Simulated scan of single mutants.
Amino acid sequence: MICAAFSFKIITGISVLLVMSIFFILIHDFLTQCDYFRIKNITVTGACRFQDEQVIKQAAIEKGTNILSINLPLMRKRLMANPSIAEAEIIRYLPDRIVIRIKEHIPLAVLDFGRRFIINKNGEIFKEMDNSNQQDLPLVTGLKISDINISGEHGSLYYDAVMDVLNLGQKRGSPVPLGAIEKIKVDKEMGLILYTAYCKTAGLHEIKLGYNDYPTKYKSLKKIYIYLKRTRGFLDFCSIDINNLNRIVLTPAGNKKEL
């Protein structure tokens, strides 16, 4: 009798579990197929260089899909597969709205190691440059891969110098704005040499900065620009060596003698 009662309890328990499982499966199927939960609105925020449609396509989600059937972690993984996207978040709002929030890498410059890579405003490489993403960014030459910062660590003296100049170029009123820099050459003996758009830097196409104390050197550049504009005109000089603030050398255009 005891064995029969025990067996009855086991069978009853299993039966209840089966019924409950079937019940929950039916509820799941009902909810994931119910028209009430069809996605009607997809909102994208944070996109600057991407169109909203591109972000939605990257996530592989469509209107009309049941909002309860989508895999949010998978959608995020698809977005993060794009190297230009730094962060991604997908939020589900019942009954019919999806919000996609992304944060893009902001390109700052191109590093040339033989192959070219784009760095963001934190100085981190986030993608290799190819024909599909040509951008008007400063080109940095003369560095080695071992010079750059990895995993949040500081880079070498040379790389930190490059980042200092790039950051100064983003400040309002900079005498050498980021958009004017065509190339930064890293000479590990002499320092940084900037090659700029001629018309944006008082006619000076080459600016030899050396290393260290760039804020002070930029202040001096501003004063020199004002002086050139007032006394000699923008087109008289093509190069300036401001490595030593006590001995600033201007090279006139037309192979004339340095001053």
Rank of each mutant, 00 (worst) to 15 (best):
A5Q: 12
F6E: 11
K9P: 01
I10P: 05
I14T: 09
M20K: 12
F23R: 07
I25D: 09
I25M: 10
I25N: 11
D29G: 14
L31Y: 11
T32I: 03
C34K: 04
Y36I: 05
N41K: 07
A47V: 00
C48N: 13
F50H: 05
I56D: 14
I61F: 09
I61Y: 04
T65K: 12
N66R: 14
I67G: 04
L72E: 06
M80E: 08
I91M: 13
I91P: 05
R92T: 02
L94M: 12
L94V: 09
A109G: 04
D112C: 02
R116Y: 02
F117D: 09
N120M: 00
E124T: 12
M129G: 10
M129S: 13
M129I: 01
S132W: 13
L137A: 04
L139E: 08
V140K: 00
I145F: 13
I150L: 02
G155Q: 00
L157T: 14
L157P: 00
V162Q: 10
V165T: 02
Q170K: 15
R172Q: 14
G173E: 08
S174W: 03
P177Q: 05
L178M: 08
K185Y: 15
K185E: 13
K185H: 15
V186D: 09
D187R: 04
G191C: 02
L192V: 09
I193Q: 12
T196H: 02
A197Q: 08
T201H: 06
I207R: 10
N212Q: 10
D213S: 05
K222R: 11
I226E: 13
Y227M: 14
K229Q: 13
D236N: 10
F237C: 06
D241L: 03
I242K: 14
N246A: 04
K256W: 06
